[in-house]
């Protein structure tokens, strides 16, 4: 699913400043919803979108380690400027939606964006 479609489905804003052209050329294969970074580190595949309610810098670091392409902050949360700066520096795209976690994941799943069906590393 293209990141531009994800932005529309979640009625999300782009906090790291990428224009529509970038979003239209960024493909996301899987998504994961979690506030536990250790779970993300254990189970997520690359070319992924992470949906989370956590907005600290370790979310960006986790995305960096996992080669996660984009993060969507849910529940209307907005990270501090230094977190956005870190994301820009690491090339991680940040979206933000007012939707809570469950409806945000549900909308994407309904439109065909799947996650991992079972725990398996790499």
């Amino acid at each position: 699913m293209l990141l531009s479609e994800i932005k529309t489905i979640l009625n999300a804003q782009v906090l790291t400043g990428e224009d529509d052209n970038v979003l239209e050329n960024t493909n996301i294969n899987t998504a994961c919803g979690s506030d536990l970074m250790s779970d993300v580190l254990a189970y997520v595949k690359d070319q992924s979108l992470l949906l989370t309610g956590l907005i600290n810098s370790q979310v960006i670091r986790t995305a960096e380690m996992m080669d996660i392409i984009a993060i969507c902050f849910v529940r209307g949360k907005s990270p501090a400027e230094d977190v956005i700066s870190l994301a820009k520096q690491k090339g991680v795209i940040i979206l933000a939606t007012d939707l809570p976690m469950y409806p945000a994941c549900g909308r994407l799943y309904q439109k065909g964006l799947r996650g991992r069906s079972h725990a398996q590393i790499l």
């Binding site: 506030d35 536990l36 970074m37 250790s38 779970d39 580190l41 254990a42 989370t52 956590l54 600290n56 370790q58 979310v59 986790t62 590393i121 790499l122």
Partner: peptide, 16 residues
Amino acid sequence: ELGFGAGMGLPNIQKY
């Protein structure tokens, strides 16, 4: 609260 301390650190290291 920062997203760690779930008891996955050492098991994750062992996995990878």
